[in-house]
């Protein structure tokens, strides 16, 4: 038995209704008010959150990467995603709880989110703190963790690194339905991590269409990879 903190739906509403945060870059999350909307959730299994190590890694990464540049921002994600996954040792049942990610984003990692997404035109920063139950790519902490969860292979985070190196790739994988079959998510990252966005789109579309006849869950990672390579050749 373990306990985790989650933000309630009312807490989410409070952030939405807050005029200053996060639209004003200087404003912090209204943590004092939000405290009232933090609930404790009991989890059957052991959950280990090594926040100290995670904060240390975030600080170090923010010191190394220049978040003013697009390619450095994706590298920041690529460097941090495996660390988030390792330090937040929770089962998927917990990870599927959006309130868990909202709590972490607002109470623990708001400075990271601000540095990664804040102050840029056309970016809805609020969704990087909140996100919804259904999508994996909005809430930034959830995005890092789930990207790693879907592409890590034992202790090997190579595919995770590759996935986060291309924003288009990570967005596509986190938005697809084949992501739920981990060998497919890994094969996808492995095969396409060096490709242009247009190629990624075209391959993904053909691959998705092929799954109306192919039973994805019976295919191995190698088989999926071979298929993706064939498609890449075809669309190229």
């Amino acid at each position: 038995m373990s306990e985790i903190s989650v933000l309630s739906e009312a807490g989410r509403d409070l952030v939405v209704e807050d005029d200053a945060f996060p639209s004003d870059p200087e404003a912090d999350p209204p943590r004092e008010e939000l405290e009232r909307h933090v609930q404790t959730l009991e989890v059957a299994s052991d959950v280990e959150l090594d926040l100290a190590r995670l904060h240390e890694a975030v600080e170090r990464a923010l010191g190394v990467f220049d978040t003013g540049r697009q390619e450095q921002r994706t590298s920041l994600d690529s460097a941090l995603a495996p660390v988030f996954h390792q330090c937040l040792d929770v089962p998927t049942r917990v990870a599927s709880h959006i309130g868990f990610w909202q709590y972490l984003a607002l109470f623990e990692f708001s400075h990271l989110i601000d540095a990664r997404w804040g102050g840029r035109d056309g970016i809805d920063v609020e969704e990087k703190y909140l996100g919804t139950q259904k999508d994996l790519y909005s809430n930034h902490v959830a995005r890092l963790w789930w990207g790693a969860e879907l592409t890590f292979d034992g202790d090997d985070y190579l595919a995770t690194h590759r996935l986060f190196e291309r924003q288009r790739l990570v967005n596509y994988v986190l938005d697809s339905s084949f992501r739920r079959y981990r060998p497919a998510a890994i094969a996808f990252a492995e095969t396409l991590w060096t490709e242009q966005s247009s190629t990624i789109d075209a391959v993904a579309s053909r691959f998705n269409d092929s799954l109306s006849t192919i039973q994805l869950e019976t295919r191995s990672r190698t088989e999926v990879r071979n298929q993706l390579e064939k498609i890449r050749e075809h669309v190229g």
Partner: peptide, 8 residues
């Protein structure tokens, strides 16, 4: 089929 050209 593999290329997703013939589908449902």
């Amino acid at each position: 089929f593999e290329l997703g050209l013939i589908t449902q």
